[in-house]
Design a binder for these strands. Sequence first.
DNA 1: CAGTGGTCTAGACCACTAA
DNA 2: TAGTGGTCTAGACCACTGT
Lengths: 245, 245
Amino acid sequence: MNTINLKFMKDPFYKNVQQQIKSQIISGQFTEGDLLPSENDLADKYKITRSTIRHALEELVKEGYISKRKGKGSIVSLPNRSLGIFRFRNLPGATDKLDPIKMIFIKKPQLGEWDDYFFFAISDEEKAAGCIYFKRICLLGDEPIMLEYTFIANLGIEALIDKPFLNNSVLDTLNAVYLIEITGLQQELKAISTDKPLSKIFNLKKGKPLIQIQQKFSTSKTNLFIYSRILYNTEKFNISNSLSL
Amino acid sequence: MNTINLKFMKDPFYKNVQQQIKSQIISGQFTEGDLLPSENDLADKYKITRSTIRHALEELVKEGYISKRKGKGSIVSLPNRSLGIFRFRNLPGATDKLDPIKMIFIKKPQLGEWDDYFFFAISDEEKAAGCIYFKRICLLGDEPIMLEYTFIANLGIEALIDKPFLNNSVLDTLNAVYLIEITGLQQELKAISTDKPLSKIFNLKKGKPLIQIQQKFSTSKTNLFIYSRILYNTEKFNISNSLSL
DNA sequence: CAGTGGTCTAGACCACTAA
DNA sequence: TAGTGGTCTAGACCACTGT
């Protein structure tokens, strides 16, 4: 059974299933708190054994798309999907009601040249391809909390310029449009002082401390990387994350 | 086969194997770059199937103790074991030779009371048990880079006070002495300014930005948590980490 | 080439959850 | 009690590494 010629399928079964379920979650067919079909049902549906289904689900657990409860099922969970992009948590004393988070473009996605002094070393191929970049701020209520610069080599991903982002996320958009997955992340943290231009953007006194995170995401598309530089104002809000093993 | 009464064994087979191999790595019987025995050999040795061995090894991969290469084997890897405690990387321009890292106690492990305003909410049980705490700085060359406060409720872990730490790590020590494992981590990042006492410790001007990370580790021992507050001087050194999926 | 890890099947019994 | 995820067995074939 299932002797479909494996040589012509680049991906193993479990990756296919993983990708299909992930797409259904990203596109909203399953939302937070929903139960996936049981492992036995999924095995019937995809006509593979439960072990292989379990392998797929386990990958989704690693990526944070689902969690599991014995006797209950697989529970869809949206948060922490963004792989190391830290999320906010209110400081005690700060607004306790969860203000809506708004992402606003300061510079819309466009094609241009790479900076001469870019914060990560880029390849000649990336340099030649030119750079799709944009700049956004994140508002919590009316307060600017985060400033984000994103840079990606223009290696066959022009759709980023026209299409609106899925879930406000480049990563989700690349996944939905090109099936590009994130395979790794390298990031550097640093504390810096607010300078004059930043002080305007954050409405913050010069000299106040900020957190800077520079990230380089690796993707399943060879030689395609996503770079971002993020500045956080942590005066009123912490950056928090949690892991479980 | 392997019908040893499961009811009397709290842990599944794969956890046992996982723990045994992990101990051998922590205690130095395997060191960085070594190859573990092959999955078939391990299966023979522990008298369980290869699938179960693979489950154990996979957990060790998740924890960062090993990595795998198809056709080669399972490779022991020490780094990144510390689960979200970010590690250093030299900034370009800073000393390129890797200076040795020294951990020095400013306050040796001792038993005391909890602070009234502790940075995480603690349970009554923890409060009643009292607090084992200590304070260390981390020197890179002669430069103070990190200041670390650690707090743990005294719930049957007195050995921490007498014994020297294994690998300079509370986590490794708890694992080796009490078989306590880390099951999760919650952490909060913030940028703060250097005040007077910190300026002495870090030999840094007042007002310079620092990174503060407050952590709460969950463990396999119920109600036992490990708290730490860490301050980093990132003027000359980044905090860097990397993940792969 | 022999040996390794990667994938997969087709079963089985268990502990847990919720009705 | 029926259904779920958790563990485990005993096989099989594959792609990849090194000699």
